[in-house]
Design a binder for these strands. Structure first.
Length: 430
RNA sequence: GGCAAGUUACCCAAGCGGCCAAAGGGAUCUGACUGUAAAUCAGCUGGUGUAUGCCUACGGGGGUUCGAAUCCCUCACUUGCCA
C-alpha cells in the first residue's frame, strides 16, 4: 500500500490545548463518559479500542469516521487496538429495522480477514505506539455456555438490557428481536472487559448509535473490576438535506477499490453539498483549523469554484487509497468534466482518464444501447432505451437522440466517452 | 403447546378470483434551472426490439380453477393474546 507517506504526513492540530478540544471542534464527540475524567485519562498515553463487525466484505464511509478517529488518537500518542468482530459478526448487532440474516462462518471469517487488511492501511502498526489487531473470536470461542452465563450473564440485568435503544426500538416494532441479537450487547461488553484485562485498555470509541453497546463494556468493567473506563462516541454523519450520508445512487461507498473505485470515491466527495462540506473536512481530513477556516471563507465568497469540495475529495481519496490514485482521479475528473473539449485531449491523457471510469472494450459501430449495458451504466436494454428517450445519454458530450444510434465517432486513441446523466461516465475502448 | 393476525417490488403500503407487472407515498434515476451544489418544477422506474406474446415477481412448496397476489392445504418466519 502506498499509504505510508500519507500516514506520515498526518498530524493533529497543535493549536488545540487538548485533543478533546480538537475532537469537539471537529464535531467528533457526540457523547462521552465524564469529560473531566476523560481529559485527565488522555493526558497520559492510554490503550483504547474500536470494533468493526464483518457484516460486509468491506468497510464503508461510516467506518471511516471510526478509523480516522482512531488515527487521531494514535497521533496524540495513544495505543490503538483495532478489533475485528470474528465473534460478534457471527451474532449480529440489532439493526433498528429488522433482524439480520446470519452469515455462515466461512463468510464471516473471510470478511474478518478483509476488514483486518483494510484496518492496516489507516493506522500505523509500527513504532512506539503501534496499533495492534485483535479478534474477539479469540476469547469468545473459549467460553462454554455455562461459563458465559455464570461469569458474564450474572452481571447483566435484563431490565437495563431491555431499555437500550437498539433493543427497545426492536421490541416496539413488529419485527421483534431474537435472543441472539438481544445478547449482542453482552458480547461487546465482554470484549471491553477482555481487552481491559489483556492490554489495560481503558477507552473505547464508536458510533453514537452504538452507545448502548459501548456502555455495556464500561458497566461490566465497573462491576467486575471496580474500575471506571472511558468512552467517546462519534456522531452519526447526516446530510443537511436529510438524505442518508455515504450513499451514491442508493449504493454504499466502500473503502475497497474493487467495490468503489478511487474515481467514484473522488466524485462522491466532490459532489458534497455546500452546507455539509466544512463539517466533512473536519471529520474526514487531517487539515488543521486554520486551513479549514480558510476554505469555509471560500465557500461563502466563491462557492462556484468549489475549492472546499476539491480539497475534500483529494484529501479523502488519498487517505483511503493513495496520493497517486487520488491525483489520477482528480485529473480524470478534470479532463472529463472540464471546460469540455474532449477532442483537444491527447490520446494518453484520455486513455488514462477513461481507465479511471467503468469501461468496456467494444467494436466500432456498436449500438449506444449495447454500450450502455456493456459498461454497466444501465442495467438492461430497456433502461438504456429509457435513458436515451429521456435525453440523458451522450457520446463524447454530444447528446444521443435516437435509440438506434451507433458509435462510430472516435476520439484520439480510438476511444469514446459515454455518459448517462451528467455525472455517470464510462469509457469505451475500441 | 393453543388461538388470532400477518409475510406484496429498494422502503412503507393498497389490492382479497379475471380490468394486476400489481394503487398511493417515500427513495433512486433523467430532464429544466445551476456551480459536477441546494431548492423548485416536470418525467421515468421488472426483463425481452415490440410480441392482444413470453419469462420473472406478491414468504417456500403443493392444490382448486378456463384463470390466483387474491380460495384451500402445508411448511417457515413475525407479532399479539392465552397456557
Amino acid at each position: 500500500m502506498a499509504t505510508k507517506e500519507t500516514l506520515a504526513a498526518q498530524s493533529n492540530d497543535q493549536s488545540f490545548a487538548h485533543i478533546v478540544d480538537e475532537f469537539q471542534w471537529r464535531g467528533l464527540m457526540a457523547l462521552s463518559t465524564d469529560e473531566k475524567e476523560l481529559r485527565e485519562a488522555l493526558d497520559e498515553p492510554i490503550t483504547f479500542y474500536c470494533g468493526f463487525d464483518p457484516t460486509a466484505p468491506s468497510l464503508h464511509l461510516g467506518n471511516l469516521v471510526q478509523l480516522l478517529t482512531m488515527r487521531r488518537l494514535q497521533l496524540a500518542g495513544h495505543h490503538p487496538l483495532a478489533l475485528v468482530g470474528g465473534a460478534t459478526g457471527l451474532v449480529g448487532d440489532p439493526k433498528p429495522t429488522a433482524e439480520r440474516t446470519l452469515n455462515d462462518r466461512e463468510t464471516v471469517a473471510l470478511w474478518v480477514e478483509k476488514l483486518a487488511e483494510q484496518n492496516r492501511r489507516f493506522l500505523d502498526f509500527e513504532g512506539k505506539n503501534a496499533a495492534r489487531m485483535v479478534n474477539n473470536l479469540d476469547w469468545t470461542q473459549e467460553y462454554s455456555a455455562i461459563d458465559f452465563l455464570r461469569e458474564i450473564g450474572k452481571h447483566y440485568r435484563v431490565g437495563k438490557m431491555l431499555s437500550k435503544d437498539a433493543v427497545s426500538a426492536r421490541l416496539n416494532s413488529d419485527a421483534g428481536i431474537s435472543y441472539t441479537e438481544f445478547s449482542y450487547q453482552i458480547m461487546q461488553g465482554l470484549d471491553f472487559l477482555e481487552l481491559y484485562r489483556r492490554y489495560d485498555c481503558v477507552m473505547q470509541t464508536g458510533g453514537s448509535d452504538q452507545w448502548g453497546n459501548l456502555t455495556s463494556g464500561t458497566d461490566l468493567i465497573h462491576r467486575v473490576e471496580g474500575k471506571s473506563v472511558h468512552l467517546i462516541a462519534t456522531p452519526l454523519i447526516t446530510n443537511a438535506d436529510g438524505k442518508k450520508f455515504g450513499k451514491s445512487e442508493g449504493n454504499a461507498i466502500w473503502l475497497d477499490a474493487e467495490l468503489t473505485s478511487p474515481y467514484a470515491m473522488y466524485q462522491f466527495w466532490l459532489n458534497t453539498d455546500d452546507a455539509d462540506v466544512i463539517d466533512r473536512l473536519k471529520v474526514f481530513t487531517f487539515l488543521h483549523r486554520s486551513e479549514i477556516e480558510e476554505l469555509a471563507e471560500k465557500v461563502k465568497s466563491e462557492p462556484h469554484l468549489r475549492e472546499a469540495q476539491r480539497t475534500l475529495a483529494l484529501q479523502v481519496t488519498e487517505i483511503v487509497h493513495s496520493r497517486e490514485e487520488a491525483e489520477s482521479a482528480r485529473d480524470a475528473s478534470a479532463a472529463l468534466f472540464g471546460s469540455g473539449d474532449l477532442r483537444a485531449l491527447d490520446a494518453q491523457t484520455l486513455a488514462a482518464a477513461l481507465r479511471e471510469l467503468p469501461n468496456a472494450r467494444v467494436q466500432k459501430g456498436v449500438s449506444v444501447v449495447a454500450a450502455l449495458v456493456e459498461t454497466g451504466l444501465v442495467e438492461s436494454n430497456g433502461a438504456a432505451r429509457r435513458a436515451i428517450a429521456q435525453g440523458g445519454v451522450s457520446v463524447n458530450k454530444i447528446k444521443v437522440d435516437s435509440e438506434e444510434a451507433v458509435i462510430d465517432d472516435l476520439l484520439a486513441g480510438d476511444v469514446a466517452v459515454l455518459a448517462r446523466g451528467k455525472k455517470s461516465l464510462a469509457g469505451l475502448f475500441f
